[in-house]
Simulated assay, not measured.
Amino acid sequence: MQIDLSGKIAIVTGSTDGVGLAIATGLARAGASLVLVGREQSRIDAALARLRADSGRDDAVGVVADAGTSEGCKALIAAQPEADILVNNLGIYGVRPFFDIADDEWEQIFQVNVLSGVRLARHYAKGMQARGWGRIQFISSESALNIPTEMVHYGVSKAALQGLSRGLAKVLAGSGVTVNSILPGPTRTSGALAMIGSMAKERGVSVSEMEALFLQENRPSTLLRRFATPEEVANLCVYAASPQASATTGAALRVEGGIVESIA
């Protein structure tokens, strides 16, 4: 299968590292012109250098904006008014006992994980609909279906994304614009590796041993039995953004290594 996204403009939020940068790089390799989004110019510059080196393209641009806020979304929209592909990857997480999660923490995780996608999709979907073609993705998580007791607020926010994705797909039915959610599992991002590294130090084991212990203790149903790479997640996102995926919409696409105990 040859995926060709030439002539398409793609925006990926939270794209200075990890899964977001891997998605942006995959889309660029397929021919799309990329808009990276992050909060710091230095991180944007470093990400652009990596993307250009890894994709062989030099037409990517960066926008410094905090897409987790209303003001940041407005700044991004002002800098890049139109897009053909929107990947709402921005998200935060953190281990926190349920009884210690205060109202402001619930509010923050919904602002960043959910409302950022609402605000951007509300704008960019209109142009896609008018042009008769577009791809919108919300990066959810297996935690949306398998709510983790150690971070209930995160799982709930990701479950909300799936409802948002399905609802927007129905709003855009028949328009040529597809909307899907992507459900990764544990992935070797810098943030995840830092967390695993800290846990490994506390328990006096190696990082690789701690990764296996984490899955055994927290995700025992995994069939992959290892963390995925950002590129493995990105591969599914690139396909979902392709012309070949035109009949895939309103779906929750899983790339979580078989953690979710479901055949549906």
Rank of each mutant, 00 (worst) to 15 (best):
G132E: 08
E150N: 15
G132N: 10
V112T: 05
Q162D: 13
A130C: 01
W106F: 07
K126Y: 12
F110M: 11
V114K: 08
G167A: 13
F138E: 07
L164E: 02
R131V: 14
A173N: 10
E105Q: 14
P148H: 03
D104A: 14
H153D: 14
A169C: 09
R135Q: 07
G155Y: 03
P148E: 03
G155K: 03
I139V: 15
W106D: 03
G134I: 02
K126G: 11
V171K: 00
V114N: 02
A130T: 10
R131K: 15
S165K: 10
M128V: 08
A160S: 02
I139D: 07
S143N: 12
G117F: 07
I109S: 06
F110R: 02
E107H: 12
G132V: 06
R135L: 05
A102I: 12
W133Y: 11
W106S: 11
V114C: 09
E150S: 15
G127R: 04
A125S: 15
V112N: 05
E107L: 11
R131Q: 15
H153F: 07
H153Y: 08
G132D: 02
T149E: 15
G167K: 07
Y124E: 06
L172C: 06
G167D: 11
A160I: 02
E105N: 10
S157G: 04
I147F: 02
Q137S: 07
I139E: 04
S143Y: 06
S116H: 08
Q137H: 11
I147S: 00
